[in-house]
Simulated scan of single mutants.
Amino acid sequence: MPILNRLEEARRLDGVSDKLQAAVTAAVRPQRLRDLLHGTWLGHPLHPVLVQLPISAFVSTAILDLLPGRRRTATPLLATGVAAAVPAVAAGWLDWSQLTRDRRRVGLVHAGANAIAVGLYATSLIARLRGRTAAGKALGFAGLAVAGTGAYLGGHLSYAQGAGTNHAAPDLDRLPENWTEVCSLASVPERRTVVRLAGDVPILLYRIGDQVSALVERCGHETGPLGEGEVTGEGWNACVVCPWHGSTFRLSDGAVMHGPAANNQPLIPVRVSAGKIEIRQP
C-alpha cells in the first residue's frame, strides 16, 4: 500500500527512532535477559508468542461486553490481558531495537498504536473497577480498534518486510541439488572460518583436521557477513559472532547461542572426497 511505502521511507522518524534504540539497548544489558526476550532459547522470536495472550483476552472481553450479564467475567479477563501485555511489549521493543531503519520506522508506529491500545484497556479496567461499566466498555472497544491497527502494521513488518524471519534460509534453495565441489581441503586453514562460493551463494567453512562444517554465510538475523565475524571458543564448540548485531552461532551445527537471532543458522551438508570439499542442498 502507498501509505505503508511512505511510512517505510519516513526519515523524519529516524531522530526519535535512534534515541529510542539507544535507550532500549542501554536498558536491557544482561545477555541472558536479551536472549530470553529475543527467543533464542525457543528457536524463533518470543514476541509473537507473548502477544497471543493479551490479544485473545482483549478480543474475548469485547465479545463478553456484547453479551448481557457478563460484567464480572469480562473484568478479570481484561485485567489478565493488560498484565500479559507487559512482557509482550518488552520483547517487542528489544526485537525492534535490532532492526534496520526502514523496519524501525514501521515498528515505531506499530508500537505507538499498541501503547495507545494498552492505555485504553488499562483505563477501561479502572473504569470497570469503579463501577462505570458503560465507559469501560466504550474504552475497551476503542482499544480493540486501535490494537487492530497495530496488528496490521505488525503483519506488514513480519510478512512484507521480513522482520523476525530467517533471512539466510532462502539461500539453501539456491544451492546445487547434487554434490558439488567448492574448494580443496588444503585451501581451508584449520580452526578459522573462510568463505567460499557455491554458484553465487557464500558459504562459511570451518575445518578441524579432515572434518569440515558448512553454514550459510549471511547471518539469518539481518544478513550480516559472518565471514568477517570473530571466532570464539575452541574445537567444535567454537562459535562465530556476527559483526553487525552480535548474534552468535556454533560452527559445528549452526545452533544459535546468543541473539538477537532467534533461529539457528542454516547448516549445509558437506563431505570431503579425494581431498575436495563438496556441498549440496539439505
Rank of each mutant, 00 (worst) to 15 (best):
L139F: 14
S273N: 12
G162T: 00
R29C: 10
A74N: 09
V240M: 03
A163M: 11
T165V: 13
R72K: 13
A255H: 09
S252P: 07
C183K: 09
C242I: 05
P243K: 03
R191I: 01
Y159N: 09
L144I: 05
C183Y: 01
V182D: 02
G112P: 12
V272P: 09
D14H: 12
L99A: 11
R72D: 12
Q31T: 00
A261E: 05
E181N: 13
G227K: 05
R280G: 01
L66P: 04
R12A: 13
D14V: 07
I268C: 03
A88E: 01
R280I: 00
V194T: 08
Q52R: 14
R71H: 14
A168G: 08
T25C: 13
E228C: 05
P45A: 08
G199K: 10
S252N: 09
G43V: 09
A160T: 13
E278M: 04
V188S: 02
P202C: 00
A214V: 01
P2L: 15
V109L: 11
R105I: 02
A238M: 08
F58V: 03
L153H: 10
R104Y: 01
L172N: 03
R132A: 09
R29F: 13
Y206R: 01
G275K: 09
L197N: 13
D14K: 07
V82D: 04
P266W: 01
I55A: 07
W244Y: 11
A214F: 08
G69S: 09
A160Q: 14
W96A: 01
R218P: 12
L205W: 11
A261V: 01
L46T: 00
R130N: 15
G229S: 10
G229A: 03
L172S: 02
R280T: 07
R71Y: 10
T40Y: 06
S56N: 08
D173R: 15
A26M: 13
P48A: 08
E222Y: 12
G254I: 03
W236K: 02
V51N: 11
L99R: 13
K19W: 15
H258A: 08
V146R: 04
A138R: 14
V212M: 07
W41E: 09
L172G: 06
G229V: 06
